[in-house]
Design a protein around this nucleic acid. Structure first.
Lengths: 138, 138
DNA sequence: ATAGCATCTGTAGTAGCTACAGATGCAAGG
DNA sequence: CCTTGCATCTGTAGCTACTACAGATGCTAT
C-alpha cells in the first residue's frame, strides 16, 4: 500500500495496487475526463499525488455503490465546482437507494420464478422438462 | 398478437410485437447464431414459423431470468441436441438461483452503506459532506 | 401505378472496461 | 557504463447485448 510519509508522488502501478483499480482503467478514466491529466516524469510516465489518489478512490467506491460513470461525473462536477451542498449529494444518494431497491425487487422476482420452475422439475432422465417448457410458452 | 389459427408464417414485425423483442434484436440473435436463419419471401423478407417464435420466447424469458446469451446458447445446445435431461436443466437453474442470490446480497450491502452514509448527512448548505468524505477516504 | 409502411443490409455507436502489440522508461546489478 | 528486465507508454481492437441510423428495396392497398 502507499506510504504517504515516504513520498507524495506515485507511479501508476503503485496507485493501481493501492486502490485496486487496474492500470488500464485508470488511463481510461483519464481519457474520458473523470480523472485529471497527471504530471509526468521527463520520460513521460504518469505521476500521481495524494489528491488524485483520493479522487480515484471516490470513483471506485462510487462504482461499488452502483453509480454509473456518468452519475459519478455529475457528482464530481458538483464537488469540483465547490458550490455543492450536502443536501444535493444527499438527494443523489437517496435516488441511488431507490435504484438499488428496484434492482433488488427485480432480482427477487427472478429468484422466485426460477425456484417455482425448479420445484416443478422431477429431475428425471427424460428430455421433457418443465423448465424448458415454461420458458418456451408462446 | 399472433393468431396461429389464421396463419403459420409471420413476418419479423409481427413476431417482434408478439414477443416484445425488437426487430434489430431478432436479427442480432440470428447473426450470433442463437436463432436459426428463417425462410425468406421471394423478395428476401424473413418469414418465421411457430417453432421459431417459441424459441425466441425461450430466449426472451431466459434473458428476463438473468441468463447471459452464452448461458442461453448452452441451454439451447442442450435442448437442440435432444439428449438433455431434466436434471441437467435443473442444475443450471439452481446455479442461476445462486447467481441471483449473490447479486441480491451485493445490492443489499450497497443499500445499507448508502443508507448509513445518508443518515450521517445533516443536509446543511455547507459544502462539507459526510457522503463525499466517506467515498474519498484513501 | 403509386403511395407509404415494412423490411432489408451494413455500419457505427453505447457502457465500462480488458487485452493486446510494439515501443520506450527506469532502476538495480555487474 | 552497460545490460537486464520489469514498468509504463500509446493506440487499437475486443467484449456484452443491444440500439440507431442510412440508404435501398419489398409489399400491399387504393
Amino acid at each position: 500500500m502507499l506510504d504517504f510519509t515516504k513520498s507524495r508522488e506515485f507511479p501508476i502501478g503503485a496507485v493501481s495496487e493501492h486502490t485496486e483499480v487496474h492500470i488500464e482503467t485508470i488511463r481510461y478514466y483519464e481519457k474520458i475526463g473523470i480523472m485529471p491529466k497527471p504530471e509526468r516524469t521527463r520520460g513521460g510516465n504518469r505521476v500521481y499525488d495524494v489528491e488524485q489518489v483520493r479522487r480515484l478512490n471516490f470513483i471506485k467506491r462510487s462504482r461499488e455503490m452502483g453509480f454509473s460513470l456518468n452519475e459519478i461525473r455529475e457528482l464530481l462536477e458538483l464537488v469540483d465546482g465547490g458550490d455543492f451542498t450536502c443536501g444535493e449529494v444527499h438527494a443523489i444518494a437517496l435516488r441511488q437507494i431507490g435504484n438499488v431497491r428496484a434492482k433488488v425487487k427485480n432480482l427477487r422476482r427472478m429468484e422466485r420464478v426460477l425456484k417455482e420452475m425448479a420445484a416443478e422439475c422431477d429431475r428425471g432422465i427424460v428430455p421433457e422438462c418443465p423448465i424448458v417448457d415454461a420458458l418456451s410458452v408462446i
